[in-house]
Amino acid sequence: MKALYSFLAVIVLILIATLGVNVANMSSVFGIIVPYLAFVVFVGGFVYRVIKWGKSPVPFRIPTTCGQQKSLPWIKQSKIENPTSALGVIVRMALEILFFRSLFRNTKTELKEGPYGPQLAYGSAKWLWFGSLVFHWSFLIIVIRHLRLFIEPVPFFVQMLDGLDGMLQIGLPPIYLTDLFFVVAVTFLFLRRILIPRVKYISLPADYFPLFMIFSIAVSGILMRYFYKVDIIAIKEFAIGLAQFHPVIPQGIGVIFYVHIFLVSVLFAYFPLSKLMHMGGIFLSPTRNMISNNRMVRHINPWNPVLEVHTYEHYEDEFREKMKKVGLPVEKE
């Protein structure tokens, strides 16, 4: 049901773009106004959310320590999993953000009948890590590749990436590897959500919606490039127009193009409202981005409250006679 709602929402979005352009003839709305609005909402919303996070302080230094602490000089510290230096944290965060270090640890717990009775076994489970990694990296490369449409001359690194991605030179235009990887990875992430009962149980419409959106965006892009073979020159003129703030609606580009950019626009606008903000949040997660030097450097809580305490004087007042009887020293006789 939850998946169905999300699926229908995406279908509705596709219909809106199709009808809007084909029937209502609003290509400038879908080609110009919506993308600009979406861009503003994305950037504005993203910044707003990050500022909102940033406004809340981090009262305690709470890194999750995943390795040996720094203590005695002859005990080997785990400088990345339990970092006491800024460099250690940077490496820890880089591994987390670029290679999903924590997800790499993933295991699969199974209860089996072992030689000594019921036995819990923890098997390797790297598929989620691998699928996510392929998904995110493909996504990033595809986004970077798209810069070639917005910038003239095309920057060197974009050209290089483009060349690498299309290096297999299959078909014309050459097939991008990331297009394949991307579709396979999104499909994998979707399938595990509906096929693993536990994951299905925890999934919300907000988990399916981005997957359907991203899948539809990928498919519409692939259709344009490999099947409809839309006029890339016209699209590039249009994209540069958008980027340089004098947008012109190109002629002779099929509705599929508008579906593509409408879905991209909606995804961008949806981004700051949703779990997709994990892209920003991962940088700010206190269990990962803090230096684990708790006992070396005092961490300040800006709202550290002054509270009522039970002082030694209170305590001695209550127990003075009992203390004296067993010879415990007291402050007041």
């Binding site: 809340s56 302080p57 981090v58 009262p59 536990r198 919300l204 700010l284």
Partner: peptide, 15 residues
């Protein structure tokens, strides 16, 4: 608590 805010916002329910 920034931790609370972020943890409420960014879980993707990967499982």
């Amino acid at each position: 608590y920034r931790s609370f805010k972020i943890f409420m916002d960014i879980c993707v329910r990967c499982g």
